[in-house]
């Protein structure tokens, strides 16, 4: 799980082009949206594509996204339980 979290942080930084942020700057329980990392709705779409492309997870109900994308901790748990690749 720890390796998955590190990988996820690295992919998020790359995909969202978070220029001034390093893997170690993101805590597992930091909020990804709002006050935490400050991501927005366009980033949410990028994360949905990331789940599909990298882990074979298709989010059929967008409402699920709110809980899944809360933090690295919630995302990695969801990926570990649902990944198909």
């Amino acid at each position: 799980m720890e390796a998955l979290k590190q990988e996820l942080k690295s992919k998020i930084i790359e995909v969202l082009n978070l220029e001034d942020i390093a893997v170690e700057d993101i805590n597992d329980n930091d909020a990804l949206f709002g006050d935490g990392l400050g991501l927005d709705s366009i980033d949410a779409l990028e994360l949905i594509v990331l789940l599909d492309k990298e882990y074979g997870i298709k989010l059929t109900d967008p409402k699920d996204g709110k809980a899944i994308f809360e933090s690295i901790e919630t995302m990695s748990k969801y990926i570990a339980a649902n990944r198909t690749k």
């Binding site: 366009i42 779409l45 990028e46 594509v49 599909d52 492309k53």
Partner: peptide, 13 residues
């Protein structure tokens, strides 16, 4: 590259 799938919005916008 992605066979017309996984298209993200940022570069399109």
């Amino acid at each position: 590259d992605n066979n017309e799938q996984f298209l993200t919005p940022t570069s399109f916008i």
